[in-house]
């Protein structure tokens, strides 16, 4: 009986680890996907309506969901106070589900956002979008392959443990 309970617990833990692994890849993909969507929105607003960053971020947050929106809400606050320092930007955009290089990439973008003249700002957004799309595609692939494998593996390992223990 004790073996069965222990087997059940180990099965649960193994499945949980697998799902957590998948969640990591899913969240990473979702964030980068939303980041690309924000960049597109940003570019459209910069070129056509020339809105300021606070109102661009505000509109995006109202029309979208997800972790990037939570970060953008905080970003709006520091912009309004004129406190978009390196530290504050890092605190907001150092998203834990991104890889180290991806975090640095996102941080660097938001740090320079709004500080460049029109031509350079548009060029920067375009360049960032190209790179972000590549990262998003890679994250999507990772989520569909490695993430899916992890979740299935966790579940299978759990069942295997249960069977062995039984």
């Amino acid at each position: 009986m004790l073996d069965l309970i222990l087997g059940g617990m180990l099965c649960f833990i193994s499945t949980y680890i697998g799902i957590t692994g998948k969640l990591y890849y899913d969240k990473r993909y979702r964030f980068l996907k939303d980041f690309v969507a924000f960049l597109q929105d940003l570019k459209d607003n910069m070129v056509y309506s020339k809105d300021n960053l606070i109102s661009i971020a505000d509109k995006f947050v109202q029309q979208n969901k997800g972790d990037i929106c939570k970060a953008l809400v905080l970003y709006k606050e520091i912009l309004a106070k004129g406190e978009n320092t390196e530290k504050n930007i890092k605190d907001i955009f150092d998203y834990k589900y991104l890889k180290k290089g991806e975090r640095a990439f996102v941080n660097e973008f938001f740090l320079t956002l709004g500080t460049l003249d029109y031509d350079n700002q548009i060029a920067k957004v375009n360049l960032t979008m190209v790179q972000a799309e590549k990262l998003r595609d890679k994250a999507e692939k990772d989520s569909k392959t490695t993430g899916a494998v992890l979740s299935k593996l966790g579940l299978l390992a759990g069942i295997a443990i249960m069977l062995i223990m039984a």
Partner: peptide, 10 residues
């Protein structure tokens, strides 16, 4: 940054 609300491009 303050004068342009951190939106120099605008």
């Amino acid at each position: 940054a303050v004068a342009t609300k951190s939106s120099l491009y605008a």
